[in-house]
Design a protein around this nucleic acid. Sequence first.
DNA 1: ATTTGCACTTGCAAAACGCAAGTAAAATTA
DNA 2: TAATTTTACTTGCGTTTTGCAAGTGCAAAT
Lengths: 140, 140
Amino acid sequence: MGDLKKRSECPISSSLDIWGDKWSLLIVRDLMFAKQCTYGDFLKSDEKIATNILASRLQMLEENGVVIKQDHPDSKAKVLYKLTQKGIGLLPLMLEINLWADKYLTIPADRKAILEEVKKDKEGFIKVKTVELMERLELK
Amino acid sequence: MGDLKKRSECPISSSLDIWGDKWSLLIVRDLMFAKQCTYGDFLKSDEKIATNILASRLQMLEENGVVIKQDHPDSKAKVLYKLTQKGIGLLPLMLEINLWADKYLTIPADRKAILEEVKKDKEGFIKVKTVELMERLELK
DNA sequence: ATTTGCACTTGCAAAACGCAAGTAAAATTA
DNA sequence: TAATTTTACTTGCGTTTTGCAAGTGCAAAT
């Protein structure tokens, strides 16, 4: 289904071929900043992604090594999605998107507050958050 | 045509509503790293964007204040596209995409070389490049 | 005066999207 | 134990977007 055909060798282009659509980075966002992510959890997000689109994007991201599926500890009916190292590596990019939006768009006050933290010590924030995500990934 | 309907208040989502497709950031890339950008110049890029898609994306980016059209100094038949401040503000994001691709995808050797510069002094690179783009914007 | 260059626009088939409904297995409830 | 609900998808189908080719109109060059 979501098989990758590169349009060029350009790193920007190659990256966009993987997650350059309106939905993929929202999935990554949920995986980065929500406590836990099952299929149903993604559907609860404000943007209201359609179920078939969600399925195809998750498959695409999995095929490209950005996310992995894991067994849910509580139930066989549930699936836990998590970011791989490659997915966690998108953190700096996600922060820059937030900072750009903060500067040039209108964003909610509570988000602005969190971004103040990031602006104060970007490298520190990335380190701490990366460790958190890596630990979350470990406990299989 | 390209009128913006926000899916949510989330900064990531709002940003993607503007440039979150397979082509917009390639246009921004050309504006950032090529010497000059007319309509025809964009068409020459490796990814071979279709003429109608290019027109709709340029309109969308212009409507959202990311690019502006200027008269070409040499000819009335030509149009020069340039990044606005808002567009120039995408530089850190573009660099992070490059760095992610460098780490997790396969990219050409000559690109890797330039990225070594960026890795050495990211803040410095951003400052210098921003000044360059601002100057380019001035000379109307 | 005619041709070429440039910035688009138009038409149309193919693909992707988005909504609603359906399915199958697991978990819960009666 | 049987019936219902939850969970993770899949399927159908109408609408929208994409991508390719061809066309248009103005400016510049020949």
